[in-house]
């Protein structure tokens, strides 16, 4: 395959960026999207140019590092991560636009790399349980009803890639935050911090400068792990419940 790439190039956080056009040839349909970018970078290095910086780690769709907006879609046209997207999803001769996640809470570090530490701070605000850790406890010591376990697991699938923020017209982190809250709040292990978790995490989310939800649904469409939009409804419910309880104290 022969492709034309239009890639966002930005020297550093303070520099102005712009789209640069590159031609790549001999791209196999079986390559992943990141392997295609590796091919481009090899050529750039051989020519003595600065390679395109992009985030990647596991390359098997579970770490949440890769973060490319491809032709206007977070992670591209398939519902998966950029690393699990294959070039067979494109046609020979296509022009592909590659941009970084866009949100004021995710500032560009270089080229396609953004700083997602705002997510870490949301987790630090309450995305954990304070139960003592150590060796894995006996699985039947704390019974969890099957529907609750399934619900928790569905939300635990969130890999924190930030595609929801990138896709949201308001740059909101509601889907990410709700996935983390719902995951822990439904489980007995997460029960002691059920109220403080949702109040603190939502407060931190606002503090980081993320937008709010207008129920456009773009986040759930972009999510490579299929976190549903109704997850946000669940978070709102938990937040209202916690606010009521806090008011009574």
């Amino acid at each position: 395959m022969k492709l034309t790439l239009r890639v966002w190039r930005q020297r550093n956080a303070d520099a102005d960026g712009a789209m640069s056009t590159y031609e790549v040839d001999d791209i196999s349909a079986d390559m992943s999207f990141l392997e295609m970018l590796d091919t481009l970078n090899e050529e750039l290095i051989l020519k003595g140019e600065d390679p395109v910086a992009f985030d990647h780690d596991c390359r098997e769709g579970i770490c949440g590092a890769c973060s490319l907006v491809i032709n206007g879609d977070a992670h591209g046209p398939e519902r998966t991560t950029s690393c699990q997207l294959h070039m067979r999803s494109f046609e020979d001769g296509d022009t592909i636009d590659i941009e970084p996640w866009r949100a004021s809470a995710f500032p560009v570090v270089k080229d396609l790399v953004v700083d997602r530490s705002a997510f870490d701070r949301i987790i630090q605000a309450g995305g954990y349980v304070t139960a003592p850790t150590g060796a894995a406890p006996e699985a039947h010591a704390t019974p969890v009803p099957k529907p609750d376990a399934d619900f928790a697991f569905e939300h635990a699938e969130c890999i924190g890639c930030g595609a929801c923020v990138a896709a949201c017209p308001n740059g909101a982190a509601m889907l990410f935050t709700s996935a983390k809250i719902n995951h822990l709040n439904v489980l007995p292990q997460g029960a002691p911090e059920r109220e403080t978790r949702v109040l603190d995490m939502v407060a931190q989310m606002d503090e980081e400068g993320f937008g709010g939800c207008t129920l456009a649904g773009e986040c759930a469409t972009a999510c490579p792990k299929g976190i549903p939009l109704v997850s946000i409804t669940g978070m709102n419910k938990e937040w209202l419940r916690a606010t009521r309880k806090a008011g009574k104290r």
Partner: peptide, 23 residues
């Protein structure tokens, strides 16, 4: 105001987003 501040840079590659009622 918060939403607009949270997404100051638009994507170069534009796509029609969400339903007409939502937009």
């Amino acid at each position: 105001r918060r939403d607009i501040r949270a997404r100051p840079t638009k994507y170069v590659h534009k796509k029609p987003r969400a339903s007409y009622a939502t937009r």
